[in-house]
Write a protein that binds this DNA or RNA. Structure first.
Lengths: 201, 201
DNA sequence: CCTTTGTTTAACAATTTTGTCAAACAATAC
DNA sequence: GTATTGTTTGACAAAATTGTTAAACAAAGG
């Protein structure tokens, strides 16, 4: 093994991840990625065979990380509100790193479903965990801590409030004439705002 | 003028709109569009000069339509809650037609900002209308009909709850094993759910 | 030092996609 | 009928992008 010892492969993958998921340039060419990583374009093919393989690898890793963390929280033994709080934090962390992840899923998932099918195989026990969480939501409604509704609607509301502000950053930067730093501040503040919107407390 | 009388141009534009904004296939080639419209690919260039021009035209028209309708509602004389109700309806209608519009904006707006700048020139009086709406939100908070918060957060919450479920349709279709029809039903039900989430009533 | 293994490079081939052009065609006006 | 105008087509050119290959190179082991 050479002196670089797997560093180049890592470098390319991380650069691709940054370009695709952080900067949202999903049309970036192999040349763009190679340039950004400061390596010869052929290396990209050497390590990953094709642009497609690299793209899917990056995509899949980010998605799996997010899903795993979400399911960890969903499956944990914790009071409901604390669970939601943790979810908000997980989303905040993951979408800060990969703000375009949700956009990518939305765009690809129903374009070539068969191709991306494998990326969405259920996590072990995932279905079960989801059902339990919906039941938990129902119990909270019964207790009166959150508004009466279909549990699935609370679920979608929660994810909408968490994810959308990351997806729509460019829109609000323009609409409210904010800087990126200003928007980041807003996103942090929103964490508690989400909870107060969803919980009657 | 020929017998078809502008029909072909319309046909191409509407097909492009469907493919780009309704089906979300934003990588569709000129050939894809021509095929879907059942016309020769050259016609696309004849009428629109380039793929780019067509793409931007479709994009701009849909965006302008949505923005115009939103601002009509914002600027209307109406009780606050009714205004929000109307906004929800406008979004529902427009995003049913162009569910990928928000995704497109998010993806393009900070890729080549100078290029898309012109698509986002403020509507006449837009800034003013926006400010007034934020003030209205503040008044409602003072009255206690909605939760105390930064007005901009209420604004983002509102748009998140309206837009995200359209952006994320493919995700929830999979996650909850729904059909498109089932998801449509859910979206309709959500209209009132959004209001009850945001208003203390 | 020479062989082996893995890495990097430049040159090239293949493919895909966009864009152009000149000629054919159709309807109407004269 | 012929000229004019706008429409449609197929063939072609140009550009951009991906993928392949063979050779140069570097490190480490024997």
């Amino acid at each position: 093994m050479s002196v670089k010892d797997g560093k180049t492969e890592q470098l390319i993958k991380e650069t691709a991840k940054r370009i695709f998921l952080t900067e949202g340039k999903m049309l970036a060419t192999t040349q763009d990625i190679a340039d950004a990583a400061g390596v010869n374009r052929t290396l990209l093919h050497y390590y990953f065979r094709s642009r497609d393989v690299l793209f899917n690898m990056v995509f899949k890793e980010a998605l799996t990380k997010l899903r795993t963390r979400v399911h960890e929280v969903l499956g944990s033994e914790m009071p409901f509100k604390q669970k939601v709080e943790n979810l908000v934090n997980v989303f905040y962390e993951e979408l800060t790193e990969s703000p375009y992840l949700e956009t990518f899923i939305a765009l690809h998932l129903n374009q070539e479903p068969e191709k991306y099918e494998e990326l969405f195989i259920a996590l072990p026990g995932g279905r079960e965990r989801m059902k339990n969480f919906l039941k938990e939501i129902q119990r909270e409604m019964d207790k009166g801590t959150i508004a009466e509704n279909k549990p699935v609607n609370f679920f979608i509301n929660l994810f909408a409030l968490m994810a959308y502000p990351f997806v729509a950053r460019p829109i609000y930067l323009k609409m409210f004439d904010l800087t990126n730093a200003g928007y980041n501040k807003l996103l942090t503040e929103r964490k508690s705002s989400i909870l107060s919107t969803l919980f009657k407390n």
